[in-house]
Amino acid sequence: MIVAGCDVGSLTAKAVIMRDGAIVGSGVVRSGAAAEASANAAMRMALAAAGVALDDVARCVATGYGRKRISFGDAVESEISCHAKGAIWQAPAVRTIVDIGGQDAKAIKLDERGDVLRYLYNDKCASGTGRFLEVIAEALGIELEAMGELSQQSSEHLTLSNQCVVFAETEILSLVSEGKETADIVKALHRAVARRAASMAKSIGVVGDVAMTGGVALNAGMFEALGEALGTELTRVAHPQLAGAIGAALFATDAARTAAAAPVSAARA
């Protein structure tokens, strides 16, 4: 049985195709202004990777910021439940998830069955989200994707005194004019973003194994900084950016199985 999950975030759209409980294709595209077009593009990419057609998909669940605007979705699920399900499927011992997306951040606490016990969500303040990294990358004139590797070359420990993105940008520009190395500045930035996300996670309580999900987890510098800020070694999941889409595909699997089982139980009755 083939199912799909699609997670339309503010910056990227993600789609995953699963066949009998295994990932057979995925796609990630940068979201344009139109959520639906991005979702379609991600889904086309995932279908092509899996070598199947949309008609082969028994059920598709949508999640994320733009979930209500996906034309091919059969149902929608909340981001929190999808991230939880997608993370615990990848790492069963995980009980705490810190998800840093392009424009939001979440901390989720799970029980052993993967049910959400508590969560906190921040989309009110850009600090502690991927947007912080993006604004500073632009100010420094470097590629967002290059930041992780760059921070590994840091040799001087710098600390940003500002947590607000706007004030931190000014602080960083003055560090540049003082002649500080970009690698050191980027590492200090990673620590600042991690500090903010970690304080959110700590306020709901960090228990068990901790996974970092969301696109920002692909940045090795951020992965390391978050582990340091939480004082624990993070569990590495294979597809951090796809966690929401995987969770959605798992919800699709559950629903498709229930639907398939229904006629049987009806016949028995």
Partner: peptide, 10 residues
């Protein structure tokens, strides 16, 4: 207009 968010960045 109504601005959706208090954060300067948003």
């Amino acid at each position: 207009v109504t601005l959706a968010n208090a954060c300067t960045v948003w």
